[in-house]
Computed example of a mutant assay.
Amino acid sequence: MAMQKKIPLRKCVATGEMLPKKEMIRVVRSKEGELFVDLTGKKSGRGAYVSKSEDAIEIARKKKVLDKQLEVKVPDEIYEELVRTVRREQLKS
C-alpha cells in the first residue's frame, strides 16, 4: 500500500481556513524589513499566507491582518501584486 503524500496545510490569515499550501500565496518580511510576495514559498523571513482569492486579499487589506502578522505596515503595492497573481492563476486554469 502506497503511503499518501501528506499535503502541507497553511492557515489563511484573512479567512482562517486551513488550505493546501499551493492554494495560497505567501507574503514575507525579510530580516531587513523588506516585504515581498513569495511565490516559491521558500524565501527566508517571517511569512504569512493568504488564500488565492480576491475576496481573501480584500479581507486581509481591510482588516490589516498582514500588518499584524508581519508586524509592519503592508503597502498597497503588495495587495495589488497579490491580486495580479490571483488573476494570472485564474487565467491559466
Rank of each mutant, 00 (worst) to 15 (best):
D38Y: 01
E23F: 03
M24Q: 07
Y79G: 07
R61Y: 08
L19M: 13
E54T: 15
R10P: 10
E17L: 14
Q69F: 13
R10D: 04
L91V: 10
K92I: 14
E71G: 12
S44C: 00
V28I: 15
K73I: 11
M3G: 10
T15W: 05
Q69T: 08
R87N: 13
L70S: 09
K52E: 09
V86A: 09
A60T: 09
E89V: 11
G16V: 12
G16P: 02
K43R: 14
E81M: 08
K73P: 03
A56E: 05
I78H: 04
I59T: 13
E81Q: 15
E81R: 15
K52A: 13
L19G: 00
E32V: 00
A56Y: 04
Y79P: 02
E34Y: 07
R46M: 09
S44H: 07
T85L: 04
T40Y: 00
V28W: 02
R61K: 15
V83L: 09
A48I: 09
R46T: 15
S93V: 12
E23C: 05
K43I: 02
L66K: 03
T40D: 10
G41I: 04
V65H: 03
P75R: 07
G16D: 03
K43W: 00
G47S: 11
A56L: 07
D67F: 07
A2S: 13
M1T: 12
Q90Y: 09
S51N: 12
E81F: 05
S51K: 15
L19S: 06
E32R: 14
L35E: 02
G16Q: 07
E54F: 03
S51P: 01
L82K: 06
K63S: 14
K68N: 11
R46C: 04
R88Y: 10
V27I: 08
E32L: 05
K6L: 03
G47M: 06
K68I: 10
S30I: 01
E89P: 01
E80M: 09
T15Q: 05
R46W: 03
D67T: 06
G47W: 02
V86Y: 05
T40V: 06
K21G: 08
R26W: 02
R87E: 14
V74N: 01
R29F: 00
Q4N: 12
S93N: 14
L70D: 07
V13D: 02
R29G: 08
M18D: 13
T15D: 03
R84A: 14
K31L: 05
L82F: 04
A2Q: 13
M24D: 07
E34S: 12
R61P: 03
K43V: 03
L9V: 09
V72D: 01
M18V: 00
D76A: 10
V72W: 00
I59N: 04
V74H: 00
S53P: 01
E81L: 08
K68H: 11
E32S: 15
K68W: 00
T85P: 00
S30D: 12
Y79F: 15
L70N: 01
M1P: 09
L70H: 06
R61H: 10
